[in-house]
Design a protein around this nucleic acid. Structure first.
Lengths: 145, 145
DNA sequence: CCGTAACTTGACGTTCGCGTAAACGGAAGC
DNA sequence: GCTTCCGTTTACGCGAACGTCAAGTTACGG
């Protein structure tokens, strides 16, 4: 049950171009095998690609993604390596949690924007000459320090 | 109480370079006033900068950030404009929520990595020749389709 | 008057993440 | 045979987001 994938299959499934997959290979993020000179992607490649794309969506650079992936695989299993890996992971988690906070803030802002727009629209409905509540400046801007 | 800021103050407070602030000005993201030829940033500029940096941290391009900021300010207040703005905001919220999911997944993965490393380390403690649980391949990879 | 510190405007350089040809190699179908 | 896919390599190009000089201006203390 160890399925393999052609480059085309993978691109369609994951929504990327073949150029992207080759690029990831140049960057040592993927290492498909070859049948002749054609690439044959394993389940493992596919799984790594999933991680890569997710990393990309959350703003990691390819170098950062490679580092994380290498941490999973690499190393001699020595204490130093393991300690280092653990530390790196914890750091990543911290930045991700900061990012989550940022995202939640952004969502809040945008939701304010939505309700604001809806208010304006309902007033358009009521009066034919709505009072322009400006919502500009830093009235809508973050209050927090 | 309408404080203003020099470029240096703002860079120090926000942790960016002056080049960055000038770049944002070139891109019409900030529009500080001038005293002579020196830039004078208002509270509003500072607030916008906060939003810009947060947007940047969550992976928005400057163009996207500008679009959002323009939506807040711009427009004639017409129904079409408002409807469009609302739609845009809602779209942004959707992508942000996708991103939050991605981030939470990533955090989970990394937490698995941490506990794995800790397990390895504790076994190092117990035995002098630890069994190398490989954690490689797609054993740690996402199970979900 | 001099230095120096903080600011200004160009303008070219750099990194990242691919896009986009250009040119070629099998294999399949008519 | 020829065309049509699907694949390959090599390599130059590009937009985004600044970095990095270079060269000049303004304000102030000594």
């Amino acid at each position: 049950m160890t399925r393999t994938f052609s480059i085309r299959e993978l691109t369609k499934e994951m929504g990327v171009t073949s150029r992207t997959l080759r690029h990831y290979e140049d960057e040592n993020l993927l290492t498909p095998e070859r049948r002749g000179q054609m690439r044959v992607y394993s389940q493992r490649d596919r799984a790594r690609l999933t991680l890569i794309l997710r990393g990309r969506r959350v703003g990691f650079t390819l170098a950062e993604i490679r580092e994380i992936l290498d941490l999973y695989e690499g190393g001699d299993g020595g204490v130093n390596q393991l300690t280092h890996t653990r530390k790196k992971f914890i750091q990543r988690i911290a930045t991700l949690e900061q990012q989550r906070k940022d995202i939640e803030e952004s969502i809040k802002e945008l939701q304010l924007g939505v309700t604001w727009a809806e208010t304006q629209l309902s007033e358009h409905h009521a009066e034919q000459n709505p009072r322009r509540v400006k919502m500009t400046g830093y009235s809508v801007m973050p209050a927090g320090e």
